[in-house]
Amino acid sequence: MLKLTKISKTFQTDKIETIALQDIDLHIKQGEFVSVMGPSGCGKSTLLNIMGLLDEPSDGDIKVNSQAIESYKDKHITHLRNEKIGFIFQSFHLIPDLKVIDNVELPLLYRNVPAKERKRLAIEALEKVGLKPRTGHYPTQLSGGQQQRVAIARAIVGKPELLLADEPTGNLDSRMGDEIMKLLESLHKNDNATIVMVTHDEEMAKRTERTIRVFDGQLVH
């Protein structure tokens, strides 16, 4: 589903060059639930951003469904992100000015899905995360756990092939974290979703099928 070959990422600030990732080879298979672990600043999030085509690698190749990413030009890459990838962020990143349903509809909006169909799909996604009664609420009217569930509904509404979750339970207490984890597990089991999740929590990582460990920008085997 996603293949990274010899991926490197270097950040240049003034005269200092920081190597964030070095020679990463990674293959995520269709339907896998993978966790990425490592200490803070080791490059986990950078790796996730590169997998999600949010950031361009300094070197190396990425293939999505055997198709190489040749161009990082805006139109091409935004289209790919919109169609194939769903994101779940640690701090939810819901748009506070939009209602829950409008937040969930967002990926469909950029896919030019008609309004009625958008609404139907958004309600379906919210139903999956157990938040159908909250469609008319604003994000600030929800608890942290509920906000993350809305963020998951937004990530899955467009039925992407890959879900990327960057510490999705990091801002939640253990009970709510467990709820979110169960939700991701059910999406994996029932919908055969491919999920890559960055986490600091060993227990959460144990619940995934495979754990990748990153240290100083390199994969540790």
Partner: peptide
């Protein structure tokens, strides 16, 4: 900027 980031992540093009 966070909203812009989210919109970009979920497929908004620069022109949109």
């Amino acid at each position: 900027s966070s909203e812009i980031g989210v919109r970009k992540a979920f497929g908004a093009s620069a022109s949109q």
